[in-house]
Amino acid sequence: MAKRSKIEGLPPAVKAWLDAALVEGNFSGYEQLAAELKKRGFDIGKSSIHRYGSQFEERLATLKLASQQAKAIVDAAPDEEGAVSEALMRLVQEKLFQVMLDFQVDPKKPLNIASAAKAIAELSRATVGQKKWLAEVREKARTAAEAVTQVAKKGGLSAEAVDTIRREILGIAG
């Protein structure tokens, strides 16, 4: 079994400080960080901090890229009907399915089957919930459109004006 990282064993407050210091220092200054940790009572070498920092920097860069891409997608294609959420859920479902298909026991990267199954179940519930919400929104829009149509007809609006109002409520491109 692989040796557990000393950094992973740090108390949460010290680890949080180290993470913040790594980000603030642009993932450099490992000797100073090792010296500061030693002052705090933790003997962790600069090489260990560098290994941890490199992994942390890579994860942080991946998260930043994903956040930027998600923001760009939302900005480019507003999601009134939940299409982006649905697409995201499908991508996650596909990724989880692929992980399950490719599952191999690797002592360095253990896969927690229970956590994966829980993630799949939660994703399925989210998918069902999103579809239910979308159906409810569409039904409310149809009901509102019908009510407005009746009021507009009684008020003497032209058929064209009534149709325009109805299309706006339902979000139908004209």
Rank of each mutant, 00 (worst) to 15 (best):
I7H: 00
A119Y: 02
S158F: 05
I172P: 00
E94Q: 13
L157E: 02
P11F: 07
V74G: 04
H50E: 13
E139R: 15
E160D: 13
S85Q: 09
K3P: 07
K109M: 13
I172D: 02
D79Q: 04
N112I: 12
G9K: 14
V128P: 06
A126S: 10
R142C: 02
I169P: 00
A87I: 08
K132N: 04
L134W: 04
A145C: 05
G41E: 05
K6G: 13
Y52Q: 01
L18I: 03
Q55S: 13
K64F: 09
G25F: 06
E31H: 07
L65A: 13
Q32D: 11
A34D: 03
L88G: 05
K109R: 14
W133P: 01
Q130C: 06
D43N: 09
K38P: 00
E146R: 11
A117V: 15
G129A: 06
L33P: 00
A121T: 07
E58R: 15
G41C: 03
G45D: 11
R90K: 08
G171Y: 07
A35S: 13
V137I: 13
W17D: 08
I113C: 03
T143A: 15
R142F: 06
A161E: 13
Q150P: 01
Q150A: 13
A159K: 12
I169K: 02
E86A: 11
F42A: 06
A152M: 14
E58A: 15
A35Y: 09
M100S: 14
K132E: 09
A2E: 11
L10I: 01
V23K: 08
E81Q: 11
I165M: 14
G155I: 00
E8Y: 12
A126T: 06
D43G: 02
F103Y: 15
D79L: 05
A76K: 03
E136K: 11
E86N: 08
S158V: 02
K109D: 10
A72Y: 10
L96E: 05
L96P: 00
R59K: 10
Q130V: 04
Q93T: 13
F27R: 00
P110C: 06
D102G: 03
K46W: 03
I113Q: 07
M1P: 15
Y52K: 00
K39Y: 06
Q104T: 11
K140D: 09
S28R: 07
W133Q: 14
E94N: 11
N112A: 11
A70E: 07
R59G: 01
E31I: 13
G41L: 04
G174M: 09
E36M: 07
V74M: 12
A87C: 07
E160T: 05
G53D: 00
G29L: 02
L123T: 03
A83Q: 14
A76M: 04
I44F: 01
A159Q: 15
S48W: 01
Q32M: 06
G9W: 08
G45R: 05
P11N: 04
A2M: 13
A76F: 04
N112M: 08
S85A: 14
V148F: 09
